[in-house]
Design a protein around this nucleic acid. Structure first.
Length: 483
RNA sequence: GUCCCCAUCGUCUAACGGUUAGGACAUCGCCCUUUCACGGCGGUAAUCGGGGUUCGAAUCCCCGUGGGGACACCA
C-alpha cells in the first residue's frame, strides 16, 4: 500500500481501527490440527496488534452439530492457551438477526424465492456436467411470477451476473474470479434456517471483523461472501487464506494418519507450547529461527510471511520440538502439564521425591510426557521384575558381592546426596579394584530395574537411601537364586 | 469436466534478479560417555519440465506436468 496516495483522514482511521479476528469452527468433530493452526494465526495477529480475538461456533447445521464437539473445541482452545475476548458466540442464537438480513435482501431485490425441486436441480447439474461445464444454478427462478402450490421455497442471493470479484488476499495475493463462475447461492433453506455463507457474512459484518483468517478451502466461498457484503453495503475485511495441512504422506489429513484431534496430542505426551511452536513454524517462518517463545511469536508473526503452499505434517519434527520444550520449560510448567498424565497413568507421587526434582533428572532423556511418567515409576514404586535382557547381562554370579559392597558402603553413609553417593561408588570401585563400567550397570539395574536412568548419583539420591538399600538386598538375593 | 490455489533437499523452510542455493527435522559417520539420553563436529541430499524477458532467473512472464481445493437446502 502506498501511503502517499492515501487521504490523511484514511490514514488516521487505519491507526484507530482496532484489529479484530475470529476463529469460527463448526462443531462437527474435535478441534483438529489444521483448525488449531488457523486459530493460532488468528489469535496471534489479534494479540500482536492489541486487537480483539473472538470465538464463534458455526452451528447452523443442526443435523451435524453436537454439544460434545463444542466442548471438545473449547477444551482444545483452553489446552493450547488460545484465549478469546468474545464468545463463544453461537450462530444458532442469532437466527432472528439472520432472518432480518435475509428479509432486507429480499426487500432490496437482492434475493428471491426459488421453488426448484431437488430432482430438478440434480437433473440440471447432471446435464451441465455432461456438457463439461461447472455445475451451477442457472437462475431459472429469478424472474418467476407463478408461485407453485405446496412448495416451501428456498431463498437465493442474486449474485451479480457480470464483472470480476477481487479477493485481496494477504497470503495468496489478489485472486480474481469472474461472476460468471458463481451462481445464486441459497441463503435460506426451505425451513427458513440460514446457510453458512449468509451467517458468516452477517456475523463478520456485525462483529466488525477486520481480518478474516481461515483455511484456503474457503477461497471459493469468498467471492460469494464479498458479493453479499457489497449488497449489504458493508466494508470488506482483509482476507488471509491459510493453506491446508497434509499428512506425512502428502495426502489430505485424515484419521488414518493417526492423531488429528488436538487433545490427542496431549494424550500422547506433547506439551501445548511445543505443539504451538511446531504449528506456527509449519507454513510460516522468520528467517532460520525454529524455536519461538510466546513473546517472540507475537513480535515476529506477520500474515504476509505465511507460506502459500500446503505443508505436510511431520511427527518427527514435532517430537524434536517437544524435546526442546521439555528441556527448557520451567519445571513448574512441566509439572503442571504432567498432572494429567500422572493421574492418567495412576502414578502416586506422594510417597517419593519432589516431582520437580524428577523432572530435572529426566527432562533431557524423556521423549515426551507419557514417557516421562513411564520411566519415572521406580522413583515412587517398587518394581516387580527387572529388565530381562539387562538382567541376563548384569546379574551374573559374583556380582552379588559387588552389590553387597555397595550396600555396606551406602548403609554407613551419614548423609544422602549426589556427592556422597558418587564418592561411595568411587570408593567401592577402588576397594574392589574394578572399573566403574563393572559396578555401575548392575547397580543401576538393581535400583531402577532398567538399564536406563539418569546418572547413578542422581538416581540413587532420588530413590532414597532406604529404598536403595532394600533394592540392593533384593537384587543380591535374586542373583544368588540364579546361581 | 469446469474454476481456483500451489510447486526449493525425504519433510518444514531461507535466499533486494547477482550466494559455493542457507538453516531445521530425519538420515549417515565421528567425538563425548557408568546406561539411556543430551550435547559437539562432519557428510549425503533440492530449485518439476519446456520456452521466453534479462548482461544475469530458484526469483519475472507464458505453456505444460504434478499436487491440493471447490463446484450441496455442509460448514
Amino acid at each position: 500500500m502506498q501511503n502517499d496516495t492515501l487521504h490523511p483522514l484514511f490514514l488516521l482511521q487505519i491507526q484507530i481501527m482496532t484489529v479484530k479476528t475470529r476463529f469460527a469452527p463448526s462443531p462437527t468433530g474435535y478441534l483438529h490440527i489444521g483448525g488449531a493452526r488457523t486459530a493460532l494465526y488468528s489469535w496471534l495477529y489479534a494479540r500482536k496488534k492489541g486487537g480483539v480475538f473472538a470465538l464463534r461456533v458455526e452451528d447452523t447445521d443442526l443435523e451435524r452439530s453436537t454439544e460434545e464437539s463444542v466442548q471438545a473445541i473449547l477444551e482444545g482452545m483452553e489446552w493450547l492457551g488460545l484465549n478469546y475476548d468474545e464468545g463463544p458466540i453461537f450462530q444458532t442464537h442469532r437466527f432472528d438477526r439472520y432472518a432480518e438480513v435475509i428479509q432486507q435482501l429480499m426487500d432490496e431485490g437482492n434475493a428471491y424465492h426459488c421453488y426448484c425441486s431437488r430432482d430438478e436441480l440434480d437433473e440440471m447439474r447432471e446435464q451441465q456436467r455432461a456438457n463439461k461445464q461447472k455445475p451451477r444454478y442457472d437462475g431459472r427462478c429469478r424472474g418467476r411470477t407463478e408461485v407453485p402450490e405446496g412448495v416451501d421455497p428456498v431463498i437465493r442471493f442474486k449474485n451479480p451476473l457480470e464483472g470480476d470479484v477481487v479477493i485481496k488476499d494477504v497470503v495468496k495475493g489478489d485472486i480474481v474470479i469472474n461472476n460468471r463462475e458463481l451462481d445464486d447461492l441459497i441463503i435460506a433453506r426451505s425451513d427458513g434456517t440460514p446457510t453458512y455463507n449468509l451467517t458468516v457474512v452477517v456475523d463478520d459484518i456485525d462483529m466488525g471483523m477486520t481480518h478474516v483468517i481461515r483455511g484456503d478451502d474457503h477461497i471459493n466461498n469468498t467471492p460469494r461472501q464479498i458479493n453479499i457484503m457489497q449488497a449489504l453495503g458493508a466494508e470488506i475485511p482483509a482476507f488471509a487464506h491459510v493453506p491446508m495441512i497434509l499428512g506425512d504422506d502428502g495426502k489430505r489429513l485424515s484419521k488414518r494418519h493417526g492423531a488429528v484431534g488436538v487433545m490427542q496430542y496431549r494424550d500422547e505426551g506433547y506439551l501445548p507450547e511445543a505443539l504451538l511452536n511446531y504449528l506456527i513454524r509449519l507454513g510460516w517462518s522468520h528467517g532460520d529461527q525454529e524455536v519461538f517463545s510466546r513473546e517472540e511469536m507475537l513480535e515476529f508473526f506477520e500474515l504476509e510471511d505465511i507460506h502459500g503452499a500446503a505443508s505436510a505434517f511431520n511427527t518427527e519434527k514435532l517430537n524434536w520440538m517437544n524435546q526442546q520444550y521439555l528441556k527448557s520449560l520451567p519445571g513448574d510448567v512441566i509439572a503442571g502439564h504432567l498432572q494429567w498424565h500422572l493421574e492418567n497413568q495412576s502414578l502416586d507421587i506422594s510417597n517419593g521425591p519432589a516431582i520437580n526434582d524428577v523432572i530435572d533428572a529426566q527432562r533431557d532423556r524423556a521423549k515426551g510426557l507419557v514417557d516421562l511418567v513411564g520411566t519415572s515409576r521406580y522413583f515412587y514404586e517398587d518394581f516387580e521384575s527387572y529388565d530381562e535382557k539387562a538382567m541376563g547381562k548384569q546379574f551374573k554370579p559374583g556380582v552379588d558381592a559387588i552389590l553387597q559392597a555397595l550396600h555396606d558402603k551406602f548403609e554407613a553413609l551419614a548423609d544422602w546426596n549426589p556427592e556422597v553417593i558418587q564418592q561411595a561408588i568411587n570408593a567401592t570401585c577402588d576397594d574392589l579394584e574394578l572399573k566403574l563400567g563393572k559396578v555401575g550397570p548392575p547397580l543401576r539395574l538393581a535400583v531402577a530395574g532398567t538399564p536406563m536412568s539418569p546418572g547413578l548419583d542422581i538416581t540413587l539420591n532420588l530413590v532414597g537411601k532406604e529404598r536403595t538399600l532394600q533394592r540392593l538386598a533384593k537384587a543380591i538375593e535374586t542373583i544368588k537364586a540364579i546361581a
